[in-house]
């Protein structure tokens, strides 16, 4: 009899122990060896209290050009810069390097929400009346230079998409946008 009581007490204790674990998922779980799980070096997006804003990630010094990367974009973010780019900036990718499949894939990620599948300005955000007044590419006088310039800096309510696309990707998108305009 005593043993039964003893056993059931142990069982009860075990059940309470298990069920009383913090079930709210707001805090990370216990880890076996935290110092193996978490890096000593500063992680991407980590904190570093040395800097005033606590961000471990730093911006490169102004004017830095990374190896194997694009050179600075010379046209200014002004109306004159736009006109200049529109007139003289040409796509450095030749016909062998332009990949419409790739351009479409990128367009479908970065442009389609507003400009729509066909470039007619009927994207999902326009249909839902979040973003309005997106023109049809066909109605606008745009050149490869001006398209690239607008991807770099944005125009009016459109923001810059330079941080989301590399130089080569931007030109692929430009080629695809031109295809949409001309078809």
């Amino acid at each position: 009899m005593k043993r039964v009581i003893k056993n059931s007490i142990v069982l009860l204790a075990l059940i309470t122990l298990i069920t009383s674990c913090d079930k709210s998922k707001r805090k990370p779980n216990l880890q076996y060896m935290p110092n193996m799980y978490e890096s000593v070096s500063y992680d991407t997006y980590g904190e570093n209290s040395i800097y005033s804003n606590n961000m471990a990630s730093r911006l490169p010094v102004e004017g830095t050009v990374a190896r194997n990367s694009e050179l600075p974009y010379e046209y200014e973010n002004t109306i004159d810069g736009y006109k200049l780019a529109k007139a003289e900036l040409k796509n450095p990718l030749d016909s062998t390097k332009i990949d419409f499949k790739k351009g479409k894939k990128l367009y479908d990620i970065y442009c389609i929400s507003c400009h729509g599948k066909k470039g007619d300005g009927q994207g999902e955000l326009v249909k839902r009346e979040k973003f309005l007044g997106i023109p049809n590419y066909k109605d606008r006088d745009i050149t490869e230079g001006s398209i690239y310039h607008v991807i770099m800096y944005g125009l009016n309510m459109m923001g810059s998409h330079a941080s989301q696309l590399t130089e080569e990707e931007r030109w692929q998108v430009v080629a695809y946008v031109q295809q949409l305009k001309n078809n």
């Binding site: 970065y110 979040k130 696309l165």
Partner: peptide, 19 residues
């Protein structure tokens, strides 16, 4: 979901980078 913005529109470094 509602606005159907592609994941990679915002998480744009997923296509080239570790994170």
């Amino acid at each position: 979901g509602d606005n159907k913005i592609d994941c990679q529109y915002c998480h744009s470094s997923a296509k080239h980078s570790k994170t």
